[in-house]
Design a protein around this nucleic acid. Structure first.
Length: 195
DNA sequence: TACGTGATCACG
DNA sequence: GTGATCACGTAA
């Protein structure tokens, strides 16, 4: 299966990309171990709305979001959890898609080990948990998604629009009315989504 | 519902 | 330098 191309990520419509990422496979190859999962939940963030880290301009943390699409934006949240985002749009346009939940696919034993868990149920059902299971840390911040450490590939399964549910994004009450935007997408009926 | 946890950011 | 804040997760 081929890695998604830069032309996929460089498009302008981050909301559309967030929807299209449902059903794709996120793969990491860290410490010579391949782990992956099917993306079942995402959220779109755009530089010109209050929910986005880049709303107030470029900083040391968010500068990767301003780069060209097709890179990983990984940051630490609440001092504990690493969050994995996909940078989209052209250089200078700070858009990104947060990966919120996966259905475990390859390297499940290693994922359980990393998360110190003994069941795959809820192993990757949240943005902070899936990064732990896949070994994603801030050392991957800024990495190309066409490289050999982390990428997204198509599994050849077509997800139709009516299989996807949209709702407001989680945990961004500070964003005022932008918190109401229905920019969270998930696979309908999936047992692998967060909470 | 409460709080751990530490980098980050907007102030001086 | 400093202090408030935070795109979560878990326990209770």
């Amino acid at each position: 299966m081929a890695k998604l191309s830069y032309s996929f990520y460089e498009r302008q419509d981050v909301v559309k990309i967030a929807r299209e990422l449902i059903g794709k496979v996120l793969v990491t190859n860290v410490n010579e171990t391949l782990t992956s999962g099917v993306i079942v939940e995402t959220e779109a963030y755009s530089g010109n709305e209050r929910g986005c880290h880049a709303y107030n301009g470029m900083t040391e943390r968010n500068k990767v979001m301003f780069d060209v699409g097709g890179r990983a934006y990984v940051y630490l949240c609440y001092g504990i959890h690493q969050m994995m985002n996909v940078v989209t749009n052209e250089k200078g346009k700070a858009d990104a898609v947060l990966i919120r939940a996966l259905k475990p696919l390859a390297g499940i034993d290693r994922m359980l080990e990393r998360a110190k868990a003994n069941s795959i149920k809820r192993l990757t059902s949240g943005p902070g948990k899936l990064t732990k299971a896949l070994g994603i840390g801030r050392e991957l911040n800024g990495q190309s998604l066409k490289g050999s450490d982390i990428w997204i590939q198509d599994q050849g399964i077509n997800i139709t629009k009516h299989q996807i549910v949209s709702s407001p994004r989680i945990g961004i009450d500070y964003a005022g009315e932008d918190a109401l935007l229905p920019w969270r997408f998930s696979l309908k009926g999936s047992e692998w989504v967060s909470k």
